[in-house]
């Protein structure tokens, strides 16, 4: 019998492809999501524009360096669309339709990872296009790293960051099995994530003690560090960042497995 080593992954690839295709049904959403990325860039342009009138350098950033950071971090935060996973799981468990995922001949978490991969692949080109448009519209002298090794490290970190966020949101979603009402917590989480990932202001502006502490947390590596690497800063943290983030991904996977195994029996498929 001929063994097909990749056959197990084909169903995940198919799930990713289906979700990629599903995005085509929401063409207006794509266009508007793309257009509304301007609010983040506009915030940075106006806020830092008025600040840099009085100072030439803030926390090591020039005006154009700062805007380059915001262009990249905005691009990465737009790609990170896993917040919907926890909400999807929450509502499905609440109304008893989570069964639709449980009965699939596919690992549920794997399905959500594949789903996220499909969505990210679809939005990648559009978000990139939006970033290029904003660079020209706001006349930003874009700062970007010229080192291929740093570029590779940043890409690996972005992928690990996306995986970590999917895992985190999947974990929060399955907590509904035990705690039932987590929607408030999910909304608070969204507010905090934007701060700790450095999408509102770069973490370099935080006090040194807090930044040191945040280096041990995964959020530092999801958007902030890749953006800094891609704008040619914090090179020395590239490798350690990948290792720390990979460690967090592995740790969260263990937590998910333990949580799923102990809570899945609580799901009765009739809703709450």
């Amino acid at each position: 019998m001929k063994i097909k080593p990749w056959s197990g992954y084909r169903k995940y690839a198919e799930a990713a492809y289906l979700n990629l295709k599903a995005q085509l049904a929401w063409r207006a959403d794509v266009i508007f999501n793309m257009l509304f990325t301007i609010s983040k860039i506009l915030f940075a342009f106006l806020l830092w524009g008025i600040i840099f009138q009085q100072k030439e350098v803030v926390a090591g950033f020039t005006f154009h360096g700062m805007l380059s950071y915001y262009i990249i971090s905005s691009f990465l935060s737009q790609l990170e669309m896993s917040g919907g996973i926890s909400e999807e799981i929450f509502w499905r468990i609440r109304n008893g339709t989570f069964t639709n995922y449980v009965v699939l001949p596919i690992n549920t978490e794997g399905y959500f990872i594949a789903m996220e991969a499909g969505v990210v692949l679809f939005y990648l080109a559009f978000d990139f296009l939006a970033a290029v448009i904003w660079i020209f519209l706001f006349r930003i002298r874009f700062v970007f790293t010229g080192e291929p090794l740093i570029l590779i490290c940043a890409v690996v970190m972005v992928l690990l960051g996306l995986l970590f966020m999917v895992e985190l949101n999947y974990y929060l979603g399955i907590l509904t099995l035990k705690y039932q009402e987590i929607s408030t917590f999910l909304m608070i989480k969204n507010n905090l994530i934007s701060l700790v990932t450095g999408t509102i202001v770069p973490l370099a502006l935080f006090p040194e003690g807090i930044v040191r502490l945040m280096r041990y947390l995964p959020f530092y590596y999801v958007t902030y560090l890749p953006s800094m690497l891609l704008t040619g800063r914090c090179r020395q943290e590239a490798l350690s960042g990948i290792l720390i983030l990979a460690g967090w991904c592995a740790f969260l996977q263990v937590v998910i497995t333990v949580t799923w195994n102990s809570y899945r029996r609580k799901y009765d498929g009739v809703g709450i």
Partner: peptide
């Protein structure tokens, strides 16, 4: 809790910004 956290984050953001500019 949701909106409270939003405005607390806002306060923190501007505390951080003002620690770098006057």
């Amino acid at each position: 809790f949701v909106d409270g956290s939003l405005f607390v984050v806002q306060l923190m953001v501007f505390r951080i910004v003002y620690s770098n500019v006057e």
